[in-house]
Simulated scan of single mutants.
Amino acid sequence: MKSTNNDLTDKLWHFAKCYIESYQHDHGHLPVAELDEDWPSPCQQGLFTAQESAGQEPAQQILWQPVPADGNLCFNNIESALELELHPDIKSYFTAFHSDPLDAVCSEGQLSLLFSWNEDDFERLQENIIGHVLMKQRLKQRISIFFAVTDEEDLILSLDNETGAIWVEHVGREPHKKLADSMAEFVAGLTPHTQA
């Protein structure tokens, strides 16, 4: 399995920086998420004070931005449980930083890049990856790992675990359209999408 880890991490951080700059340009502040006191994140950058809607009590919101993961994130437990080595690029992708999803545009349209919001979310992500891989094995399909969703409900973007290529696939089916030979190539071609 060919890895482009350093290049990929650099490209992910470059995209995240461009996303934040674009969001600030379009909205005048960092991205906003609803405050959930039971689901804190190192991404949180303080409370966001919005103007009140007509007669409605606004939900408390926070400003956020991607922040480096602390180095404790790893996939050893997944690889041990599945007796499968995950492609180095998918491990680099999901351990580069914590973030809310980052919206982007590629040649195929709009998508949301998935990341973990906090360490508990990373554990939940791993459980979802295990479920996805087990489904692929049960259906006797090649192993892929999802990393992005689209505005079509069952259409995801995934990395082929053997080759590292990026594909479009319907959940439960074989990937059907190749988008890039590597994650680094794919991320380099993305444009942030920060307008409502």
Score class of each variant (00 low, 15 high):
Ala33His: 01
Val187Met: 14
His132Leu: 12
Cys43Ala: 13
Ile130Ser: 10
Pro66Phe: 09
Asp160Thr: 07
Thr4Cys: 06
Ile129Ala: 01
Val133Cys: 05
Ser80Gln: 14
Pro40Ile: 04
Leu113Gln: 08
Trp39Leu: 06
His27Met: 03
Val171Leu: 14
Val133Met: 08
Asp151Val: 06
Ala33Gln: 01
Glu162Pro: 06
Gln24Asn: 08
Pro42Ser: 06
Lys17Tyr: 12
Glu34Cys: 00
Cys106Arg: 00
Ile20Gln: 00
His170Gln: 07
Ala50Glu: 02
Leu63Tyr: 04
Gly55Pro: 02
Tyr19Val: 07
Leu30His: 02
Val187Pro: 10
Ser92Asp: 06
Trp64Gly: 04
Pro42Ala: 15
Ser158Val: 13
Ala33Leu: 01
Tyr23Trp: 03
Asn77Met: 10
Asn5Gln: 15
Gln51Phe: 10
Gly71Glu: 00
Glu85Gln: 11
Gln65Val: 01
Ala180Pro: 09
Ala104Phe: 04
Asp26Gln: 04
Glu37His: 00
Glu108Pro: 11
Gln24Cys: 12
Leu155Phe: 01
Val187Ala: 12
Ser144Pro: 02
His14Gly: 14
Leu157Ser: 07
Glu37Ala: 02
Ala196Ile: 10
His25Gly: 05
Leu12His: 03
Glu169Met: 10
Asn76Tyr: 10
Val149Arg: 03
Asn161Ala: 04
Trp64His: 09
Asp181Ser: 08
Thr95Leu: 06
Gln56Cys: 11
Trp64Asn: 01
Thr163Asp: 05
Cys106Pro: 03
Ile129Phe: 00
Leu30Met: 09
Phe15Ser: 01
His87Phe: 14
Asp103Ser: 12
Pro101Met: 03
Trp117Phe: 06
His98Ala: 07
Thr194His: 05
Leu35His: 02
Asn76Pro: 12
Thr9Asp: 00
Val32Ser: 04
Pro40Ser: 05
Asp10Ile: 08
